[in-house]
Amino acid sequence: MNIIVCIKQVPNTAQVQLDPQTNTLIRQGLPSIINPDDKAALTEALRQKEEKGAHVTVLCMGPRQASLALTEAIALGADEGVLLCDSAFAGSDTLATAYLLSLAIRRIGGYDLILCGRQAIDGDTAQVGPELAQRLDIPQISYVEAFTLQAHTVLARQKWEDGYEMLQAEMPCLLTVMQNQKQGRLPNLPNLLKAFQTREIQIWDKSHLRGLEIRRIGLEGSPTRVVRVFTPVQKGKCLRIEGDPKEAAASLVNYLKKMLTN
C-alpha cells in the first residue's frame, strides 16, 4: 500500500492581526504550520500505516523553508518527503498547482491512495484536491470525515451539510480529508531523530518534472489572476446605548422596532 499525502505550509491565519493605523495585515512573526486539514490527512495516512502497513510519502510545494513541514511530517512517522521548489512555480493558482502536483505524483508513481486536506486556511478554496484528481484521471471523494481501506477499494464517509454519505471508490483514488477532534499526534523519539538526520527529503525543481509545459504554471500560466487585494472598511457608526441593563434593553428594543417598521 503506497499513500501519497499532499501538504501545504501556511501562515497561521487564526493569529493574524490588523495594523489599526494602516488597516493592513501584520505578517511579520506569523508562525508557519502544516495546514490543519492536511495534517488530518497525514494523521489518517499514518494510522493506516500502523494498522495495515503502508509506505507514506509526503509531497509539498512551496519555498525552501517549506521543507520544515516535511521534516515535521517525517517526525510524525512519514517515510519520505518531496518538496517541489522552483521560482517558476511561484504564483501558481489552484489549477496550475494541481498540474504540478500531478506531474510530481506521476514521477513518484506506484500509488494506491492520494490524500489531501479538504482546504487550506490561507486560501479556503478546496479546489486543489478535485483538480488534482482530474489531472490524474482518478476518482475523488471530498469532505471525508473517516475512511477504511479494503482490498481494492476505499469506503469513505463524506460529510454533507445535513448528514453524510458512505461512498465506495476503486483505488487508486484521491480523498480530501477534514480535520476532526481526534487527530492529535505527537512525534516519537526514533521518528524525531530520523527527521533530523534524514536524507529522505528530496527537492525537485522544474527539471525533475517530465513533460512539464511552462505555459501551464506560475503566475503567467494560471487561468485566474488576482487583480486587487484590500481590507473591508468597518462601519464605525455604532450607536452605543448607555444606562443600566433594563434601560439599555428598552432603548435597544425601541430602536429595533423603529428600524423594522420603517
Binding site: K235, R240, A248, A249, L252, V253, L260
Partner: peptide
C-alpha cells in the same frame, strides 16, 4: 466597529432584560 447598536455590559444581565422588553413590542 461593525455594530449598528452596542451595549457595553454583562450579557447575563442585559439579555434577560431584552427578553423581557421584547414582549412589550408587539408591533415588532
Amino acid at each position: 466597529e461593525v455594530a449598528d447598536y452596542g451595549i457595553v455590559g454583562d450579557l447575563y444581565k442585559v439579555i434577560p432584560q431584552i427578553i423581557a422588553e421584547w414582549d412589550n413590542a408587539e408591533d415588532l
